[in-house]
């Protein structure tokens, strides 16, 4: 396997790892009401390296799954859609957190 192929495989694996964690991160960050771009900037400041075309559709999916609430709010001249975690989301978040800790422990043991 050449270096280029290795890099490609690495990138794809990282993407898959991130994809699984994104829901957990988004739900955790939506304890406060935020609009999409605000959340995107916050996540990228934290180093998630996320793009708009990943986050916005995910927010819509979480909304449709009734894990977060959304609301259009008119601010000054134009509307913005705000998102906030709801009771269903809180329950899922707690379960995901617990599962994440378990996985971390298992991985720690494996990769030592």
């Amino acid at each position: 396997m050449d270096t280029e192929e290795q890099q490609r495989l690495f990138k794809r694996t990282i993407q898959e790892m991130r994809r699984g964690n994104l829901v957990l991160a988004v739900l955790a960050l939506l304890h406060e009401r935020k609009y999409g771009y605000e959340l995107l900037k916050e996540m990228n400041t934290l180093g998630f390296g996320l793009t708009q075309d990943t986050l916005y559709p995910m927010l819509r999916r979480l909304d449709e799954q009734k894990l977060i609430d959304s609301e259009w709010v008119v601010e000054t001249t134009r509307p913005r859609k705000y998102y906030c975690i709801n009771r269903n989301g809180e329950v899922l978040l707690e379960n995901l957190k617990s599962e994440w800790k378990n996985q971390m422990e298992r991985l720690e043991r494996v990769i030592k």
């Binding site: 708009q52 916005y56 913005r80």
Partner: peptide, 11 residues
Amino acid sequence: SREIESMIYDI
């Protein structure tokens, strides 16, 4: 469409 429009405005 409105979501994307709002996102473009934010950017």
